[in-house]
Amino acid sequence: MSEFPILVVDDEEEFVSTLVQRLRKRGFAGEGVLSGSAAIARVAASDFAVILLDMRLPDMDGGQVLREIKKIRPGSRVVILTGHASASEGEEGIKNGAFDYLLKPVEFETLLEKLEAARERVP
């Protein structure tokens, strides 16, 4: 598996740790953070191919984090992943530069399909 770093941003520690483990098992360079500020810091420090972003974070609004990420790395692909998501929230995210959105709970296979789609779009 080539380098395909993925950043998982979610305040649910259980979710982040399991997902990162499963991604690594599939060969992705998975990494997780639990807050918006940590996500922005990580994106600034390192270029991730895909960022899985929860819209509800303890310190910042997901939309705000999305805008900051797109400012720092306009080429990054952000997939919104939220439990609150109504379609409109996801669509709002796409308008703000998100690659796509997924509604929790999402099956791992669906998530992988979305990541593959993002990888194919790598410029």
Partner: peptide, 11 residues
């Protein structure tokens, strides 16, 4: 509920 459901499914 969606968050715990996600975790249950993932686990």
């Amino acid at each position: 509920i969606n968050n715990p459901l996600q975790i249950i499914g993932d686990q």
